[in-house]
């Protein structure tokens, strides 16, 4: 089992701890990852607001490179995209190339211009899907050295990882991450906001609306007793964590809840040192002491 890896622009800047923790966790589980050769931006939600077929072409170049790599010694390797926006854009491109003839003809022709003969075999996957459905919760649970006892986790999926295609989980009430953190020894709290939108880039554009969406998410997590929020998208993490101070100031709240990537949490449970997981890069420090290892538990 091995995968092609599409980091995306976010994981090279604000989402750096996400990349660090993904690489560390996959290394620990002995799953090789190979970065996609000369990948380009997926186009996100902004590019498609200017020109749609060009946006599809931009994303399709990555799919075509992945297929080329599969044909050259990486057979059967799916393309892993950890950022929700990248994941959806790549998946959506694949979907419309298969279902819309106009899109397919135009994009295939454009790819040919760049020397790609794309057959459409690339499969786009999210690390959450891979960890739970390919590697398996049991295998991860076996590798746990520090059970995360006493942690009450609000699993936050955001929108684009489950919607609109519902590839591996339910669109309104997903449970993949909840099952995963339960296997790590933590408690996943039940909360209805797990797939509600964080507003994406609205915090940078129409901030008043963006902050209100995040405030609702944070308050609900707090009310239900979560002591950490886990995300699987760099933009959700950025919004919920980096704007927390501003939300408190703007609305007179006193929310203080760390927001980490789910891969960082897995890494802690697997006993990977904090520095390798990029925990020091979080704005709101994870103050809890690392839980004792299984052996220490047994002694006590």
């Amino acid at each position: 089992m091995s995968y092609l890896y599409f980091p995306g622009c976010s994981l090279r800047s604000t989402g750096r701890p996400y990349e660090e923790s993904i690489l560390a966790v996959f290394r620990k589980l002995n799953i090789p990852l190979k970065e996609l050769d000369d990948w380009n931006c997926c186009g996100a939600t902004a590019y498609v607001s200017i020109d749609e077929n060009r946006a599809f072409t931009l994303a399709a170049r990555n799919l075509a490179i992945a297929e080329r790599m599969q044909n050259n010694g990486n057979a059967g390797e799916d393309l892993m995209a950890p950022c929700s926006a990248c994941y959806l854009v790549l998946e959506k491109t694949q979907h419309y190339m298969k279902t819309d003839e106009g899109v397919n003809t135009e994009v295939t022709a454009a790819l040919r211009r760049g020397g790609f003969d794309y057959k459409g075999t690339t499969k786009v996957r999210h690390p959450l899907d891979i960890l739970v459905n390919d590697i398996g919760i049991e295998r991860i649970a076996k590798a746990v050295v520090r059970p995360m006892k006493g942690m009450k986790v609000a699993c936050y999926y955001g929108c684009q990882v489950v919607r609109p295609f519902e590839t591996f989980d339910h669109a309104a009430y997903p449970t993949t991450m909840d099952r995963l953190v339960t296997a790590l020894g933590a408690t996943a709290i039940d909360w209805p906001m797990k797939a509600r939108c964080c507003g994406g880039s609205l915090t940078g554009t129409i901030q008043e609306a963006g902050l209100r969406l995040n405030r609702a998410l944070l308050k609900e997590a707090e009310k239900r007793g979560a002591n950490i929020i886990l995300t699987c998208c760099p933009l959700c993490q950025h919004n919920l964590e980096c704007y927390q101070k501003r939300i408190n100031r703007r609305f007179g709240e006193s929310i203080h809840i760390p927001v980490a990537y789910f891969t960082q949490f897995i890494g802690l449970a697997l006993g990977i040192p904090r520095k390798e997981l990029g925990i020091q890069r979080l704005f709101i420090p994870l103050k809890f002491a690392d839980p004792p290892t299984k052996e220490a538990h047994a002694h006590a």
Partner: peptide, 17 residues
Amino acid sequence: IKGMKELRKMIDSVEPR
């Protein structure tokens, strides 16, 4: 990216909507 020339050629070949 390295393949900028190739990418631009591809993008430009798509008729702007």
